[in-house]
Amino acid sequence: MIELKHITKWVNSGGNRFFLLRDINLTVKEGEFISIMGPSGSGKSTLLNVIGMLDEFNEGEYNFIGQPVHQLKEKQRSQLYKTHIGFVFQAYHLIDELTVYENIETPLLYQNVKASERQAMVSDILDRFNIVGKKDLFPPQLSGGQQQLVGVARALVAKPKLILADEPTGNLNSKQGEEIMELFKQLNTEDGVTIIQATHSERNAAYGSKIINLLDGRIEK
């Protein structure tokens, strides 16, 4: 599903070149649950952003479901990731001015889903996550765990093949964190959603079927 070949990314600062990613080679098959681990600044988020097509890379090749991402234009890339990838963030990144319902609905708007269909899809997911009662609340009115639940619901509503989660439990207490991880596990095993998460925590990493360790932008063997 994902094939990264010799991916390298750097930034120039004051004449020096800082490598964020160095010669990353990674293959992810459909249905895998991968945890990326590493200390702060090791490049976990950058790697996720590259995989999510939110960030560019300087060298290397990236194939996503057979499409050469490095050769696509921004519009095509946007089309690709918005239909196939769902994002979950550490800071949830919900839009504060929109209700729970509207937040979950937003990705469908950008995929031009019809109103009736949209309603069905959002209702489904609200139901499944047991947050129907919260649908008219605004994000600041929810607890962190609940917000992240909405975040996951939003990532899943368009039925993506891949979920990219950047420290999804970083802002949560351990019990809330566990619930989210259980949810990921369930999605992976029951729905066959491919998941790539970045995390600090050994315990969370253990939910994955495969662990990749990053240090200074390199995959440690």
């Binding site: 939110l54 239909t83 995929q111 939003r154």
Partner: peptide
């Protein structure tokens, strides 16, 4: 900014 970022991640095109 956050909103713009989120919308982009969710698939908003620049023109949108």
């Amino acid at each position: 900014f956050k909103e713009v970022g989120v919308r982009k991640v969710l698939g908003a095109l620049r023109i949108q």
